[in-house]
């Protein structure tokens, strides 16, 4: 759904049912890839459909062929593999929220999932769909940017890995090619880490006015590494790289966190919409960055 822009109506006739479309159920990842290749760029993967179907209802999206991957239970998992947490692309938001292992290592994901959409939407929307939709307001994109995850993309010729921060190429655009599927997200588990996510919304279930996620790794009282992700705040690659650079190697003092917030705010380019004017969003970038850093630190616990 078009969370970033609330002017979707402009110039569009309100047509609240999808246009004609073909439909096929994929029976395996290979089958899905075959179908994608066969039907070409006008075909679309249908995961939870909670972004795609609303866009089709408004006829902002008019694919000719839908390839339903909901039957691919093999893409629906959360597993520990060595020092990595692996999340299948078809994992539903609700499953991420319910997962104890996710909560244990990545509190940021539980923080985020608690405020993504609403419980019913979370039952059906998927992690992969969220990332591939690439809406600038999508919460998980920033969370994974903060965690410096890796996306695994499968194509006819095999799988490739892309860093979370290289996954999005712009609003509603990713590096996933027409005949490819995102199949997995990998998150590195590192000792000494803590993370947190905070979103300001006008109401429960609304898209963020702005949100920030952070992950910090401490060595003694010094920030050994840090990831900061910004949602809906006009940050390049959903990340506050300048603020991270500032903080890395510095002691985790309140002043330094505030300064990091300030730097994050200075380096993002939020746009005004009905959720708020640009100056307010920039201010949020600052306040929320400092807050999530502080909470992430309190969770880091060595």
């Amino acid at each position: 759904m078009t969370g970033g822009s609330d002017e979707w109506w402009e110039g569009n006739a309100a047509v609240q049912v999808p246009a004609q479309v073909e439909y096929e159920k994929a029976t395996s990842v290979e089958h899905a890839l075959t179908l994608l290749t066969r039907y070409g760029p006008e075909s679309r993967i249908l995961a939870g459909g909670h972004s795609l179907i609303p866009m089709m209802k408004l006829r902002l999206a008019q694919p000719e062929m839908l390839i339903d991957i909901n039957g691919l239970t093999e893409l629906c998992y959360i597993t520990l593999a060595g020092n990595q947490l692996r999340i299948g692309a078809l994992t539903r938001h609700a499953q991420l929220l319910d997962s104890a292992v996710v909560g244990q290592y990545f509190a940021i994901l539980h923080d985020a999932e608690r405020v993504i959409a609403d419980p019913i939407v979370r039952n059906w929307g998927t992690v992969g769909g969220s990332l591939c939709q690439a809406d600038p307001s999508e919460d998980l994109s920033a969370a994974f940017a903060a965690l410096k995850g890796t996306m695994v993309i499968q194509g006819p010729g095999g799988a490739r890995e892309v860093a979370a921060r290289e996954f999005h190429t712009g609003p509603y655009q990713t590096v996933v090619r027409p005949a490819e599927i995102l199949i997995e997200v990998r998150l590195p588990i590192r000792a000494g880490g803590g993370s947190s996510y905070r979103k300001v919304a006008r109401r429960a279930g609304d898209w963020p006015v702005g949100a920030v996620g952070a992950a910090v790794w401490l060595e003694r009282d010094v920030v050994a590494d840090v990831g900061i992700g910004l949602t809906a705040l006009g940050a390049r690659n959903f990340a506050a790289a300048e603020a991270e650079d500032y903080l890395r190697g510095r002691p985790a003092t309140a002043d330094n966190l505030d300064r990091a917030g300030q730097i994050a705010a200075e380096n993002c380019r939020p746009v005004a919409d009905q959720r708020g004017p640009a100056d307010y969003k920039r201010h949020l970038a600052r306040v929320l960055t400092a807050r999530v850093l502080s909470e992430a630190l309190s969770r880091a616990g060595g």
Binding site: E7, W9, A14, R203, A204, G205
Partner: peptide, 29 residues
């Protein structure tokens, strides 16, 4: 008091044409 308003822009576009933009309170507010 907190969220419901039908707003227009200078071109006369209605910016409150859906429940995504015209917000109604939920059980949590």
């Amino acid at each position: 008091a907190l969220m419901q308003a039908i707003v227009f822009d200078e071109a006369g576009n209605c910016l409150g044409g859906s429940f995504m933009d015209y917000l109604l309170p939920t059980a949590k507010e």
